[in-house]
Amino acid sequence: MIIVKIGGNILDNPERLQSFLADFAALPGPKLLVHGGGKIASAFGQRLGISPKMVEGRRITDAETLELVTMVYGGLVNKQVVAKLQALGCNAIGLTGADANIIPAQKRPVQSIDYGFVGDVAGPESINVDALGAILEAGLTPVFAPLTHDRQGNMLNTNADTIASVLATALAPKYNVQLVYCFEKKGVLQNAEDDDSVIGHITTEKYKTLKAEGVVNAGMIPKLDNAFAALSQGVQAVQIGDAAAIAQMAAGGGQAGTLITL
């Protein structure tokens, strides 16, 4: 079972997206895709006069922004990806966490920052594995938008990396799960300015060192935190790398990207 999260500059680049989806559709066995779409939501919001509100790189989701991301993530991006996969012979089904109650979440409590309608998933135990398993066993490929719900009738904007990690850990008792984070870089980089400075393998100890030295920072930290959380809860392998190398990463063994192990 392979779970792939796609984000970065792939979704808004038609050629790279088409190439990635062709490779994803060709992967054998059961698979699941989680997508982001923040750049597309920001661009669409500008057309509607809604400016993104960001604090420390994270989107503040007020009521107006929630409507925007629900439309863009759950509608525009999700259905375009599903339609493209259908054209490639992959029988995909587009989902949010609200569908079949697969991913309930809690609205993030207000502390020093009010993130608005942002959802935090309690953990793999909260995932409706029976419903998700039935979809997979029907031969369908789920494509998840980064949206959850609070069981009170409200949608919640939720980090796509987190959704991929939690789905992976929830399915780990049932499948031999491999989690792959795809974006526009070749992997975790030693030098952010050098695309070829890929760190081939990161263990828990090496991660502590890289953080202390400031080699990994900003958006890469939550991605790696999610990777290690998944590994600690039964996921077999996690890799991070270029969407163009999804076939090599899916083959395992650290052939491409950055391999993450405990």
Rank of each mutant, 00 (worst) to 15 (best):
G153D: 10
I2Y: 09
D120H: 04
T96D: 06
N226A: 09
D194E: 13
I60E: 03
G94T: 07
Q46S: 05
L27E: 14
D114M: 12
E56M: 14
G214A: 11
G234C: 06
L140W: 05
S197A: 08
K84N: 15
G74L: 03
N176P: 08
K79I: 03
A244I: 03
T158G: 05
N128T: 07
I246R: 00
K5D: 01
L21R: 03
F44P: 06
N217F: 10
E64R: 12
A229F: 10
A43E: 06
V72F: 01
K185Q: 14
T148Y: 09
L231T: 02
A172W: 15
A170I: 01
S51R: 14
I3V: 13
D114N: 14
S112E: 15
F20Q: 04
D99F: 02
R151G: 13
I10Q: 00
I6F: 03
V177N: 02
A100Y: 15
I3P: 00
A170Y: 01
I163L: 10
S232H: 15
A172I: 11
G257C: 04
I260K: 07
H201A: 14
G153S: 10
N78M: 04
A230R: 10
A172N: 12
T141R: 04
E67F: 11
Q18C: 12
D23N: 10
G214C: 11
